[in-house]
Design a protein around this nucleic acid. Sequence first.
DNA 1: CCAATTCTCGATCAAATTAGTCGAGAATGA
DNA 2: TCATTCTCGACTAATTTGATCGAGAATTGG
Lengths: 153, 153
Amino acid sequence: MKLSKKAEYALRAVVAMARSSRTKPVPIQELSEVAHVPVKFLEQILLILKRGGILQSKRGVGGGYQLLKQASHITLAEVVRLIDGEFVPMSCTEAVAADGSPGGTCECGQQGGCGLGRSFSDLQHVVNEYLESQSIQDILQREQPDDVLVFEI
Amino acid sequence: MKLSKKAEYALRAVVAMARSSRTKPVPIQELSEVAHVPVKFLEQILLILKRGGILQSKRGVGGGYQLLKQASHITLAEVVRLIDGEFVPMSCTEAVAADGSPGGTCECGQQGGCGLGRSFSDLQHVVNEYLESQSIQDILQREQPDDVLVFEI
DNA sequence: CCAATTCTCGATCAAATTAGTCGAGAATGA
DNA sequence: TCATTCTCGACTAATTTGATCGAGAATTGG
């Protein structure tokens, strides 16, 4: 019941990019150092974020990655969903439709959604709403200024 | 980012036991059928729940498992924590103390807790509070009476 | 005491997932 | 043309997950 390292690294990378006031692209190599993420692993991650419309890239000298949107318009949910997929706490939540109406049959054998499915479906919504509510900008504002590592400009 | 099958099965088993009005112990075999969980796997699970103080067992003919507490006094949190351990959404939340005071150094390199750690620590609390708030009795009340399978008495 | 029943428990196992690496290649700019 | 930097598919090692197996110990009924 936790984020994958990949998602955690993705968040770290996006936060690090948002922290920098630099307008030039950041090479993977440099981002890797600031965010404490293995280079080749970060490579994969940034590619996913790019395909997901969060970043843009530029090749060659002076190239690297840049945020495509403002930090205040990128939510935790967006990043996490791209990497780890939707948060689904257990199999039976899938049988419960958004409006609570009966869906398919749960793996547990009951039809129209079981009590556990309903309860965990509520949890799913609580979590999603929280992740949607938090932007990368919000994260920056909760950092302690004295301990933060920023790119050199 | 989801419960293990083990935790899901544990919840199903506890809910099934709570559903039954029977006062005699339920054998693993029977529980396995009602809860749709493989017998030998369920065996392991029930043992954990027993050691965790949720169930009691009795051997021999007429033996089986029984809830040790009322359904209204068993929370989802209790069951899930026994099987899957504490919900910790990411590594950096560990560096944030319960009161928000600076803890150790995150894996991300920052000291006194990073912004991500603080935000996910909040999520952790939201989730824990939800799971603590929901009892097995609450789950029973959300079942649809017509579709539920109960033990024969 | 014997046999059937039922829990106990450690070992083992296959498949899936996770975390991370490698190396070749394509685009870009100087 | 060369250095730089992203692109991308393949690969691997370790871990976790989801089970299964089999021997054994307790309990009850006869």
